[in-house]
């Protein structure tokens, strides 16, 4: 497979579990160690490559809503391959070790964190957004200052939403590598809805093989990640439904695997929401809006012919936006006929 053939996967891979083969990113440029980018947008362009091509170890904390998670991470980029080990610091622990596309997940005997849910069981969604999206069109990027976090000098970038259909962001990037060290998602009142932050960090190429070995004993689940052969067909089609309205700038970005329905993700380059359209079966879901931190879930039911569908919009967008999107879903008669009932 040539480089060109692999490019469509790039955006997705960057988004997912720090997983990017070197060949895919080889053309991205990496100013690590070079001269420091100046403008906010230059910093942003460096962000993706930095996440993967920087080697580091650390602990990060992530909180949204009432949930707080802490994970220890060791990430090594060597000879074009990403290797990493993530250990959950909460509950009974558990860890995930990845070498290139091979993933081993160790589950603790007990504990509420379900690691088997974390590892996707099917082929990944295929992103067809290969370009860095024009974030500046929907957000006002601004370099707002410098700081020091977890022992590193950082530059702070604010991305203020230009309309009320999306949240604003604040990113703290390490000065030499561009590594994301901290981020906030904020609403229009400036309240922090989601908080990610390294609490300890060591950016170093000196990471031994031992640090990347599985150390927890427990049930192991091993998988090789990657798209299956011939699994490119469903990308980009909103099979059987359309959106009458979507917030400006949100383009179809990925077609996630979905159990029994049709789902498409939309992204403006920074935020994303997914639209799920599934036939209502035995399980009755509540309708209305809920949210966890910056993530909104809006669900409604709609009947087409004799079938009832559940429409769920899930994403890092304000509740009114999710609602408007959900209400703009139009289901084709075709889908209605094609969907199996259950």
């Amino acid at each position: 497979m040539g480089l060109a053939g692999r490019l469509p996967l790039r955006a997705l891979l960057m988004s997912l579990l720090l997983l990017v083969p070197a060949a895919v990113l080889a053309d991205s440029g990496n100013s690590s160690g070079g001269q420091e980018p100046r403008s906010a947008s230059e910093w942003l362009e460096q962000l993706g490559p930095a996440l993967n091509m920087t080697s580091y170890r650390g602990v990060f904390v992530y909180s949204r809503g009432a949930q707080v998670q802490s994970l220890r991470i060791v990430h090594r980029y060597r000879e074009g391959r990403v290797e990493e080990r993530l250990v959950l610091q909460d509950g009974a622990g558990g860890e995930i070790v990845r070498k290139g596309m091979d993933v081993v997940c160790v589950l603790p005997d007990q504990g509420r964190v379900r690691l088997d849910d974390v590892i996707p069981s099917g082929p990944f969604a295929e992103a067809f957004s290969t370009q860095f999206m024009p974030v500046g069109q929907w957000y006002r990027p601004e370099r707002v200052g410098e700081d020091r976090i977890a022992g590193y000098d950082v530059v702070t970038i604010a991305l203020r939403a230009r309309d009320e259909n999306r949240y604003s962001y604040r990113l703290w990037l390490e000065k030499n590598t561009g590594l994301l060290i901290k981020s906030h998602v904020t609403d229009t009142d400036g309240r922090v809805l989601e908080h990610f932050q390294f609490t300890s960090l060591d950016i170093t190429d000196d990471i031994s093989d031992d640090e990347l070995k599985v150390q927890t004993s427990g049930r192991e689940i091993a998988r090789t990640l990657g798209p299956k052969e011939g699994d490119h067909s469903s990308v980009g089609r909103m099979n059987g439904w359309t959106l009458d309205w979507r917030p400006a700038g949100f383009e179809p970005a990925a077609a996630p695997r979905s159990g029994n329905g049709k789902a498409v993700a939309f992204s403006d380059g920074l935020a994303a929401f997914s639209v799920f359209v599934e036939p209502v079966g035995r399980l009755k879901m509540p309708t209305g809006v809920s949210r966890v931190g910056a993530t909104t879930i809006y669900m409604r039911e709609v009947s087409v012919g004799e079938r009832t569908f559940l429409i769920a919009v899930v994403g890092e967008v304000p509740p009114p936006t999710a609602r408007k999107v959900a209400e703009s879903v139009q289901i084709d008669n075709e889908l209605s006929a094609e969907m199996p009932g259950s």
Partner: peptide, 27 residues
């Protein structure tokens, strides 16, 4: 729903660890 959304969450920019944390959080 949360999990599937999180799996392709920050397409475009790619926020690495954040995306990962969202996965864990969703689970």
């Amino acid at each position: 729903f949360l999990l599937e959304h999180a799996q392709h969450n920050s397409v475009g920019v790619g926020r690495g660890s954040v995306g990962y944390a969202r996965l864990v959080s969703a689970s």
